[in-house]
Computed example of a mutant assay.
Amino acid sequence: MQAVYVITGGTRGIGAAVARRLAGVPGRGLILGYRGNVERAEALVAQLHRADSPVRAVACDVGDPAGVGELFAAADALGPLAGLVNSAGVLERQCAFEEITAERWARVLAVNVVGLALCCREAVIRMRGSDRPDRAIVNISSKAAQLGAPGEYVDYAASKAAVDTLTRGLALEVARYGIRVTSIRPGIIDTEIHASGGEPGRAHRLGPDQPLGRAGTAEDVAGAVAWLLSPDAAYVTGTTIDVAGGR
């Protein structure tokens, strides 16, 4: 029976790299959640879709509970859920803490924490009654959760710290069902998310200062995600892995 993987934020950055890593396996279907760029979503689906490993893109703002429901309804139509990768996230422009408005806090937390939690909830509902041995959830956090992102986006950092705590608590709660839950803290990764923060070249500026001497790539993170979803990580749950070049 076909195994289905849902990837939120699945058509750009880390999410798209994860999709490319997981696609093409016979009997594995992908549902890619995306927001906004229809052309990019359609292009990625055209690149990855195969008759025996279907890929579908679903417009979804995870900050909208109705959108989350539609995303998982699309997964249900494809087959039983085996995995969820929560890669969707928002990052606002760099600013001092006192400039962060209540509206901005609400936007960031609605997507990065509440939306992620709702996706986890939908996944657990579907996975709990399954006897599949490969059920896993991987949440994309950030090294900012530990570093705090002072003077840039403390709200984003705080939201990712919440993701780490949610990952630990949920993992311990659902372990008895055989569901594994982990998260990854990427460091300075060269994706377009930095443009959302107002500094498109941030990864190039900071990359040489990292212990490994470079910024990471989306593919660096995708490799870790693929491992956490695989049978090789069958005894790994409730933990967060840094993919941060030693940062």
Rank of each mutant, 00 (worst) to 15 (best):
Q2M: 15
V4D: 03
V6I: 15
I7Y: 04
I7W: 09
G9F: 04
G10V: 05
T11I: 14
A16V: 02
V18I: 07
A19Y: 00
G29A: 04
G29R: 00
L32A: 12
Y34I: 09
G36I: 04
G36A: 14
E39F: 13
R40W: 11
A41F: 12
E42T: 06
A43T: 15
A46C: 05
R50K: 08
A51P: 07
D52R: 07
V55Q: 09
C60I: 05
D61F: 00
D64G: 14
A66Y: 06
G69C: 06
G69A: 14
F72H: 01
A73F: 05
A73R: 04
A73K: 03
A73P: 03
G79K: 05
L81H: 01
L84I: 09
L84H: 02
L84M: 10
V85R: 06
S87M: 08
A88C: 09
G89L: 02
Q94A: 12
A96M: 14
E99S: 07
E99Y: 03
A102L: 10
L109I: 12
L109H: 13
L109Y: 13
V114Y: 15
A117I: 09
L118F: 09
P133T: 09
R135G: 06
I137W: 00
V138L: 15
V138M: 15
S141G: 10
G148E: 06
G148C: 06
G151C: 04
D155H: 11
D155P: 10
D155V: 14
A158E: 00
S159Y: 13
K160F: 00
V163F: 02
T165P: 03
T165L: 11
G169K: 03
A175Y: 01
A175G: 14
R176D: 09
R176Y: 05
R180D: 05
V181R: 01
R185Q: 15
P186V: 08
P186W: 12
T191V: 12
T191N: 04
E192S: 15
S196K: 08
G197V: 08
G197D: 11
G197E: 10
P200F: 05
G201V: 07
R202A: 13
L206R: 15
P211N: 12
R214F: 09
T217E: 07
D220P: 04
V221Y: 01
A222H: 06
G223K: 13
A224D: 00
A226V: 01
A226M: 04
W227L: 01
L228V: 00
L228Q: 00
P231Y: 00
A233I: 11
V243Q: 15
